[in-house]
Design a protein around this nucleic acid. Sequence first.
DNA 1: TCGCATTTGTGCGTATGTATT
DNA 2: AAATACATACGCACAAATGCG
Lengths: 240, 240
Amino acid sequence: MTKNDARGGVALWRRIADEIRLDIIGGKVSSGEQLPTEAALAQRFAANRHTVRRAFAVLAEEGVVRAEQGRGTFVNSARRLSYRIGRRTRFSEGLAGQVQDMHGELLSTRLENANASVARGLGLRPGTRVTRLERLSHADGRPLSRGTSWFPYQRFPDIAAVFGRTGSLTQAFAELGITDYSRASTRISARYGTPDEIRDIGLVPGSVMLVTEIVDVDADDRPIQYALTRFPADRLELVV
Amino acid sequence: MTKNDARGGVALWRRIADEIRLDIIGGKVSSGEQLPTEAALAQRFAANRHTVRRAFAVLAEEGVVRAEQGRGTFVNSARRLSYRIGRRTRFSEGLAGQVQDMHGELLSTRLENANASVARGLGLRPGTRVTRLERLSHADGRPLSRGTSWFPYQRFPDIAAVFGRTGSLTQAFAELGITDYSRASTRISARYGTPDEIRDIGLVPGSVMLVTEIVDVDADDRPIQYALTRFPADRLELVV
DNA sequence: TCGCATTTGTGCGTATGTATT
DNA sequence: AAATACATACGCACAAATGCG
């Protein structure tokens, strides 16, 4: 039981790819710019050139870089999106100006009993009936977030139907008599993507996800939504 | 170039360990509770029992679980800390009540020229002289965060010395005439830990880090600090 | 005390993936 | 492209500790 080899279960080519992708997304190297030679990167990462090439192959597959024989490897694109969160920002507003097209997709709805976390978030007793919505949002055609929302069933028995018809939470609430609501709390954490998320959002295993856990309240401070939203951390950052 | 084997460069034992750790930290299984048998988990993850055992070995090494021969494997403990961030919260306040002892350590100081990010954060021209501080904070004896701060040199030429003496940023600013300051912006992202962070904080390679990028301003809204702080995501969440 | 089922701990052989030279 | 070394993952078998009747 060697227990802890230096690699920690993450292949070297994977870590090299992650680090280079991070430099690109973080803006350390700009779009169109030429990356260091494979030999130079091999030295920097204390790896073999073969291993760097494997990392480049993955990044090229993702469309992040482009290799040109005899010239070098170049950055193709893409800064990270900034999603603004605040007491009164609506989901679609948070990315205003950064994406052309933005739309959500309702994956499924379910009536279930609140577990401890959901009950705490909505201020209900565990076991109370709640409506659960599974959502997937797209930005410019690419999946951007995977969200799960819970609503108190007694207060909003029809929310699944209304949301499915309107496609907008703000509008759905409006039809149900909630003209105004705001964010009561936001918790932010990070972890690896689960197999489900990787499938839905179209990521590679081991991708890092940003997770927001939010509670929305109506004008009387009564909780109306508890939601968990997961974003791929290499495509988006949160701005408070 | 097979490009994308199913593993994506992350070992199966590593992902099993991450998922179980997540269940524990997230509160899905409680302290002291017995985990499913190795055989059951092997089935659930479609893995060999040896592979599950390897994941358990890592978690046991971290102190998260404890195996007892002939009985089973049990959860040792540990919920995640919640670090509250807001316009006026100071670093030490953010964790009030959650840790017994909290102290910071000044790793190094350096005088350098602002790069693009630092210059943007502090509202200076790139190349302007700035003081850079490298910090490591501990909570209850364990390293909890790794921070890098930049300050405009012209305005605070002695901040390194003063901070080194007082150990508190609030107090250092007070001695330098800043009686009040607040948070102008907070950006939050997530990524893998770098080799340096892994060494300083004492993590295993491939650990997920939460990264906050903040700008503090004085009472006249002039930037006085730009800082990057990195937290291990499995030990801490952020609360807005 | 004994037998028995359950569960963790250990050993070995094999195939494949990773990384270097 | 090929040879090599090591890590990962699987399958099978058996030992050791525990709890129970």
